[in-house]
């Protein structure tokens, strides 16, 4: 009973689409039928019945091939508009038999998988080049197979979240160039502002040794000291149009992440601080702007 129950559930999950080869099989059977019927050729009858039986049996065989598969995860790396990125997926085969000739389909890509062994998982990836930033709908995500005879395409829709975010294309002025241009903003020790009480966390280079000699623990304070610890990017000042600004900001965010520099971004709809939000959250805000 379990077998039939499982088969019925597979039958519900797996969809079947006729291919051009099925049309050929129908025509061939039609021709053989006439050949057999007109001349009472039993050999032709046998060929006809074999073709019919094989085409008929291809249904259960194909459904069983694909019906036990389950996509356990589908995650993409950071995807940027107009840049090639990778998505990763895991498929588990809970069947006692191997699954053959599979294709992992998304709306933008097809990944061929020659087989998944019985009772095993495979991890694989596919590349994708999104056209624009925002939410990318990968669906319909599905596993397809032409196995065994290619007369029917078996389709197993995947019921996991097939959405991902595409960040703006990171292009524009590099952060290093920007820093050179905006050097004063980064803070200079020459702008001495006075002496402040040592809190215990300041760098040794900032200790004011003259005060220490007098018995007082003090550190030097600089006029732009606070500004120099964080980069402040302002959306409107980045470039001439919104998409270019988003692309520029994305590039700077990535550079800052690379050099572990804290930064803030002032957007028309909000303020983002790398100390408070993760890089991915900031990038997502840029993507969905």
């Amino acid at each position: 009973m379990n077998f039939f129950r499982k088969f019925i559930s597979i039958r519900r999950r797996v969809k079947q689409r006729a291919t051009r080869f099925s049309l050929f099989v129908v025509l061939l059977m039609f021709g053989l039928f006439f050949e057999a019927y007109m001349h009472n050729f039993n050999l032709v009858y046998i060929a006809l019945f074999f073709i019919f039986a094989l085409a008929f049996s291809a249904g259960p065989v194909g459904m069983r091939n694909i019906g036990y598969l389950e996509v356990k995860s589908l995650k993409c790396g950071r995807l940027f508009a107009n840049q090639e990125g990778k998505c990763f997926f895991t498929i588990e085969n809970s069947n006692r038999q191997s699954s053959w000739a599979l294709e992992f389909h998304t709306a933008y890509s097809v990944k061929k998988i020659s087989n998944i062994k019985s009772k095993s998982k495979i991890q694989d990836s596919f590349t994708i080049t999104p056209k624009s930033r925002g939410i990318l709908e990968l669906s319909p995500c599905k596993i397809e197979s032409l196995f065994p005879l290619s007369t029917v395409r078996f389709v197993l829709p995947i019921d996991i979240d097939c959405k991902t975010i595409v960040y703006p294309n990171p292009i524009g002025e590099r952060l290093s160039s920007y820093l050179n241009r905006q050097k004063s903003h980064f803070g200079e020790e020459m702008d001495f502002d006075g002496i402040a009480r040592y809190s215990g966390s300041e760098s040794a280079s900032r200790i004011h040794w003259a005060s220490v000699a007098k018995g007082e623990m003090a550190v030097k304070s600089f006029e732009r000291l606070n500004e120099s610890e964080a980069l402040n990017f302002i959306f409107e000042d980045c470039a001439s149009d919104d998409e270019s600004r988003l692309s520029q900001l994305t590039l700077w965010v990535l550079d800052c992440e690379k050099h572990k520099l804290p930064f803030t971004i002032k957007m028309p709809n909000g303020y983002y601080d790398s100390k408070k939000e993760s890089i991915d959250e900031i990038l997502e805000a840029l993507a969905l702007y």
Partner: peptide, 25 residues
């Protein structure tokens, strides 16, 4: 295995598929 699966169908169809009494060519 695929062939074995289709074999009973072939036999059943061969026996019961309606024939007409045309002469063998």
């Amino acid at each position: 295995s695929f062939f074995a699966l289709s074999l009973p169908w072939v036999v059943i169809l061969f026996i019961f598929f309606p024939r007409i009494s045309f002469e063998h060519a």
